[in-house]
Structure formats: structure tokens, C-alpha cells
């Protein structure tokens, strides 16, 4: 169990944490910029001297007069910008935590991590000669080589372009699964962590506003600021259509199609972003969109002068659609109206 309790005020910002988290799996830490995500991670790592109490598995790291110095805490952290040491080669960067761990009596081997992250060809190069994706891969490897009971990832992919992100994401996913070290994964992009996380922590203005298992998906909906505001539906795989490489999923009595193969009978989570959902008053048959779910409008919220968010209920599961104010007027949408949700794209979570 990880417990973080107390408050800290920096210029113009107050964080007030009261948090208990089981130390297992990946916990996604979400929230807008300035919500206190990095403050929380830095506080756990002990990088800022704060009066906040931190307790890991019953062991007090700070608070009540104790302060375990950050370099003695069993955490490893990956930063957004990699932070490789520019004067050292990749090999020496990787050796940095190893040497220190060995002094503290822990022996770890380089070879494993180098293989997993395919770093062998980069070992003798200097950070300045690496691409953004390569640099972040080295940073990940380096963090893996520090003995840690807790892994803190502070937006590890957000400084990368989408190609580099695609290059690293699978490694990161494998590592999170294979290492089984409890991880706090800070991100802006829900879809980045969704398939990894078993838990979600949502911060807003320095407070924890949600801390729950990810299946209870409602919590995730209000957070994303980049338009990926969405919902998670639980569905059951019915059967795989081999000829078109689609799997048919069942949500209650309705059908949904996702690309690729899912084993029959498996329960999956499907992420549907609000921007990918359109609304029709009646089912439209002659349309390319396959996923059309009957639903009932349960709420309408104005977002801006031009867009609004429509909350839908689909056989007991929630969906959100972002549509224009003009469409809302033309369709005459009101709470309680039966509609059809047209879902442009779905992703397995």
C-alpha cells in the first residue's frame, strides 16, 4: 500500500493529498497540466522537501520527523525528457545505476535490459547523437537498472513525435507487464495507458478526485483535455470474422465490431472517444459506419459556444458524444430522447 498524505504550497499552487493506493499493477495518473501529477511523483521520490507524509508498504519514507534521502528510496523514475547524462555514452549511462546498486549490495545485469530494449547497437554512442525515441528507450532501460519497489513514469512518451511513440509504446507495455513492479504512470493521453492500467488516479487542482479500479470507467470520462474525452464500454467477444479480420462484440443485445481477433467469449474493454461518436435520430442503414448503437440521451452539457457533450445510455453503459450546438438544435435533442449512436472508431482497451 502506498499512502501519501498532507499538503504543500508552492507559488500559486497548493497540493493537498490524501491517498492510499494498493501497490500492484499500473496506476494511470491523469489530470490537466498543473493538477499536481508531477508534484505527487516528485514527492514520492523525495526530490522536493515537502511536509507531506509518504509511506510505502508500512515503511515511512517521509513525515513525522523522518525523511529518507531520495537516493536511498527504492524508486525509479522516468522523466518526460529522458535526462540522459550528456557526458557519458549509452553504456555508461546504463552503468550509472548499476554501480550504485552494487555498492548497496544489489547486483543486476545489463544484458537483459539491453536485449529487451534492443539497445546493443547504441551502446557506444553519446546521447546527443540519438533520436528522441532512442534516447527515451535508453532512459527506460536506465531506470529499469535501478533497483526499485515502485516505478514512477512521468509522461514518458509525451515529448516524442507519434512515430517515436509507436516505436517505444510496445516496449513500455511489455515491461510494465513483465516486470510486475508497481507503477505510477502519469500521462495526458488516456489511450496511451489505457490497455496497461488496472487503476486510475485523477488529480485536479492539487487534489485527488478519483482513485479507483479502471473498470469503473465513469471516473475517466471527465478528464482528458485533448478531446479524447471518452468512455469505456465492457463487451464480450462473440465471434471472429476471419474473412474481414473483425471481431463481433456484444454489448447487451447490441453488436459492435473491432478490428483484429479477440478470443471468443473473452470480456474486453472498449474505449470510445467522445469526438468519435455521432448521433442520428433513427438508424441509418446505408452508411459506412458499422457500429451503430441504440441509446437514450441522459444529459446534455454545453462545452463551448459551438460544441456540446451528449451523455448517452446504451443498455446500462455510458457513452459520450461531442457534437456541435447547431446539430443539437437541428436534431432537437432533449434528455430522454431515443437516438442511435454512430461510432466512427473504437479501440480495444
Amino acid at each position: 500500500m502506498l499512502r501519501v498524505f498532507g499538503s504543500v504550497t508552492r507559488t500559486g499552487f497548493t497540493a493537498e493529498f490524501d491517498l492510499a493506493l494498493p501497490l500492484e499493477g499500473v496506476t494511470a495518473v491523469l489530470g490537466a497540466s498543473g493538477a499536481g501529477k508531477s508534484t505527487l511523483l516528485r514527492c514520492i521520490a523525495g526530490l522536493d522537501a515537502t511536509p507531506i507524509e509518504v509511506e510505502v508498504d508500512g515503511e515511512c519514507w517521509q513525515g513525522n520527523g523522518t525523511f529518507v534521502p531520495p537516493h536511498r528510496r527504492s524508486v525509479s523514475m522516468v522523466f518526460q525528457d529522458g535526462r540522459l547524462f550528456p557526458h557519458l555514452t549509452v553504456r555508461d549511462n546504463l552503468a550509472f545505476p548499476l554501480v550504485r546498486a552494487a555498492r548497496a549490495g544489489t547486483r543486476l545485469a545489463l544484458g537483459d535490459v539491453v536485449d529487451t530494449l534492443a539497445l546493443a547497437p547504441l551502446l557506444d554512442r553519446r546521447p546527443a547523437t540519438l533520436s528522441g525515441g532512442q534516447r527515451q528507450r535508453v532512459a527506460l532501460a536506465r531506470a529499469l537498472l535501478a533497483p526499485a519497489r515502485l516505478w514512477l513514469l512521468d509522461e514518458p512518451l509525451s515529448s516524442l513525435d507519434s512515430d517515436a511513440r509507436r516505436e517505444i509504446a510496445p516496449y513500455l507495455a511489455d515491461l510494465c507487464r513483465a516486470r510486475a513492479i508497481p507503477t505510477l504512470y502519469v500521462t495526458h493521453a488516456l489511450d496511451e495507458v489505457h490497455h496497461l492500467a488496472s487503476r486510475v488516479l485523477v488529480l485536479d487542482h492539487g487534489r485527488v478526485i478519483a482513485n479507483q479500479s479502471i473498470d469503473d470507467a465513469g471516473a475517466i470520462a471527465p478528464l482528458d483535455e485533448r478531446g479524447a474525452r471518452g468512455e469505456v464500454l465492457r463487451a464480450r467477444a462473440v465471434h471472429y470474422l476471419a474473412d474481414v479480420d473483425l471481431t463481433e462484440l456484444a454489448i447487451g443485445s447490441h453488436r459492435l465490431y473491432v478490428a483484429g481477433r479477440v478470443a471468443d467469449g473473452a470480456t474486453v474493454r472498449v474505449l470510445v472517444a467522445a469526438r468519435d461518436v455521432g448521433i442520428a435520430l433513427a438508424d441509418v442503414a446505408d452508411i459506412s459506419i458499422l457500429n451503430r448503437l441504440p441509446a437514450v440521451v441522459t444529459a446534455l452539457t454545453e462545452e463551448t459556444s459551438s460544441s456540446c457533450l451528449v451523455v448517452l445510455d446504451c443498455d446500462g453503459q455510458r457513452l459520450r458524444a461531442r457534437i456541435t450546438q447547431l446539430s443539437r438544435k437541428r436534431l432537437g435533442l432533449m434528455v430522454g430522447m431515443p437516438v442511435v449512436a454512430l461510432i466512427k472508431s473504437v479501440a480495444l482497451a
Partner: peptide, 29 residues
């Protein structure tokens, strides 16, 4: 200097003395 590097070294287990000798000094040769 980029103080972020010091934080990185810290979470990798480097003590203040260690950071000074193996990060600060070589970076400022």
C-alpha cells in the same frame, strides 16, 4: 546547469557527494 540531470541521478541512487563528483564536475570540465 540542467538541474533535471541531478534529479535523474538522484533517483538512480546517487548521493549528493556522488552527484557532485560524477555528474557536476565532469559536466563542467
Amino acid at each position: 546547469m540542467d538541474f533535471g540531470l541531478l534529479d535523474a541521478a538522484t533517483v538512480l541512487g546517487a548521493s549528493p557527494r556522488d552527484r557532485f563528483l560524477y555528474l557536476v564536475l565532469p559536466l563542467h570540465r
